[in-house]
Design a binder for these strands. Structure first.
Lengths: 338, 338
DNA sequence: GCGATTTTTTGAATCGTTTCATTGTTACGA
DNA sequence: TCGTAACAATGAAACGATTCAAAAAATCGC
């Protein structure tokens, strides 16, 4: 009975042709003031809302961009998502968000869905090796930008953060404040991010002849894993203790901090300096505010959208791999030793 | 040049009629094994992907559900979103996610967008008073379910968690473990959630003649605000100190915990018990694992989708307001006093 | 007031599906 | 072999927007 009004209904109601209504919607200055007013009133009276499916069908493509992330709960991605949405909104597109949860199956589902929706393009932080799948997409005319993952530059554009540089930054900061016996705490070395951060730290330590770097393997990347490492350190004699600890992420660092401060055997930063990675909200409000490495997540999201737009617009696009440099955030946990 | 293949192309390539291809896609057993095979091969060879816009146009509605939350970064909503997505996927729908960020303008934009997309229905955690706006939607045939907000049951279905019950649960637990001088720490009383939790706590305290409840106003709901309250408490003499503290959320509680444990003047739970609300990930891995009240977020998301489906399916639906009861999670921070 | 020019308006064609009445085919019992 | 029922395949119409060539109306200069 109360089917939603179509453009035709509006046309009838305003005694005008359908083309005119369409013009009012899309090229307002092609139509005279008088009729525009009449049409707008009709739209209002009928509560007309444009049917995007019909528009899409005619236009040939949608005004949406697909975005698939590994975990929306992860603050890193949450921030990327938000900035991507904002950047997309600015250029009149909307973002369809998919959370793969590190699951290749869900990822594939979203890719299918987005393809059926004829998204303008795809932003993806892939689970595993999906280059084959993405190659297909590319051939079918769906441009894709990889997020937080480097890509074959002859095929895709990508945005990422330089983890090696971040690792260097963290270790260098510890060295600059006078620490010499450093330790790196990090989860399985198989994770690229972890490996790169360690590599960067190694590079910084090599620059100081008298500095050493010890690697402490953690069982995962959680607060609990950090506490495990911390407890182990507390067992050691004071002489054996590193005087600067760099953790592969903030959760680990917070765990280490808990262990060290709880027992009150060691003080941060006097006895040992501590720095994390990611600069999550909790870092600033830790018992001892935690120094950290901040990744430019807003920039990541925005740039990803921009790269995608480039690809959408040009016929044979030049792919670009944009790598951002993270930023050092100094707080109390690495204040100068005295 | 390499426009994506349409159903017509597939039909030609497989030497069948377009209707047959459609049948293969939608009613596979209406078509013989032989032709089905031919059509499927053609689909594969041409890399055909169904155009959802055209399908939608014909069908009259989409297979998507709009979901607008106040803040995707908030673990509460993150969890609701995820479970809603899962529940929707199970019934063959996809979720379009919008983050209003507590901004009425962005909220309105998303409502417009979703309406143009002809979503099957809308799940929304509204910013302010949008009942007028939602009324309009309802009249236009877009069923809506309110999330985390009670609604006029004659108009909308809704899912929410009983904050009063949660407050009662927390206070009762403190009382049950022998505490008598309770304190409630909470942000502006204008926030309904905060007010309700306090009300519930009051109810529990009234049941114990010799118990008292002090209300400590916090400046917001952050770790820092909690630390402010904690510092203030530390200043007091031991006799003046409450022996059980209930914080309106976990962040506040963690802040309070930092203050109390850092100075080492008071011990948790021996001198004072502490309980939070929300059971965020950090609660379990705090210095002293934090007792908390867990909200059944997965259930919320799932139920919201179910209520929406009911409305979509029936012509003149009965609206239901589903209220869930939160759950007590006991950890070390409220262990019996001794 | 007239022709030329510019501005507005018109409406049929189109996009790619699904639907469904119709036609074509096959199988089977008599 | 024929009639009938069951099953398969067909293809035109419809969904609601945009486009664009063509028609209509308004404006202008003289």
């Amino acid at each position: 009975m109360n089917r939603t009004a179509s453009i035709k209904d509006v046309a009838t109601h305003a005694s005008v042709a359908v083309g005119t209504v369409s013009n009012v919607l899309n090229y307002p200055d092609r139509v005279s003031e008088r009729t525009k007013e009449r049409v707008l009133r009709a739209i209002d009276e009928l509560g007309f809302v444009r049917n995007d499916a019909a528009r899409q069908l005619r236009i040939g493509h949608s005004r949406t961009i697909g975005l698939i992330v590994l975990d929306v709960g992860n603050p890193f991605f949450t921030s990327v998502v938000r900035s991507a949405e904002d950047a997309a909104a600015l250029q009149g597109s909307a973002v369809l968000l998919g959370d793969s949860g590190h699951d290749a199956g869900r990822e594939a589902n979203y890719i299918d869905l987005f393809q059926e929706q004829r998204v303008q393009g795809l932003l993806i932080s892939p689970v595993g090796d999906v280059t084959d799948r993405l190659d297909l997409l590319r051939e079918r005319g769906v441009p894709t930008v990889l997020v937080d993952r480097l890509a074959d530059e002859s095929k895709f554009s990508s945005v990422a953060v330089d983890d090696d540089a971040g690792g260097y930054l963290a270790a260098k900061h510890l060295l600059d404040t006078g620490r010499r016996r450093l330790a790196f705490v990090g989860g399985p070395a198989s994770i690229r991010q972890v490996a790169d951060r360690l590599e960067g730290a190694r590079r910084a330590v090599k620059e100081e002849p008298d500095a050493t770097l010890e690697v402490l393997d953690s069982d995962g990347q959680t607060v609990l894993a950090g506490r495990g490492v911390g407890d182990m350190l507390v067992q050691r004699g004071r002489a054996e203790l590193p005087d600067g600890i760099f953790c592969a992420n903030d959760l680990l660092a917070l765990g280490v901090m808990q262990s060290l401060t709880m027992t009150h055997t060691f003080r941060i930063p006097e006895d040992v300096a501590l720095i994390g990675y990611d600069d999550i909200d909790f870092a600033a409000s830790a018992v001892v505010p935690l120094s950290s490495i901040r990744q430019p997540t807003e920039l990541l999201g925005r740039t990803a959208i921009e790269l995608l737009s480039e690809e959408v617009e040009s016929q044979n696009p030049v792919h670009r791999a944009v790598v951002f440099t993270p930023e050092l955030v100094v707080r109390q946990s690495t204040a100068a030793a005295g």
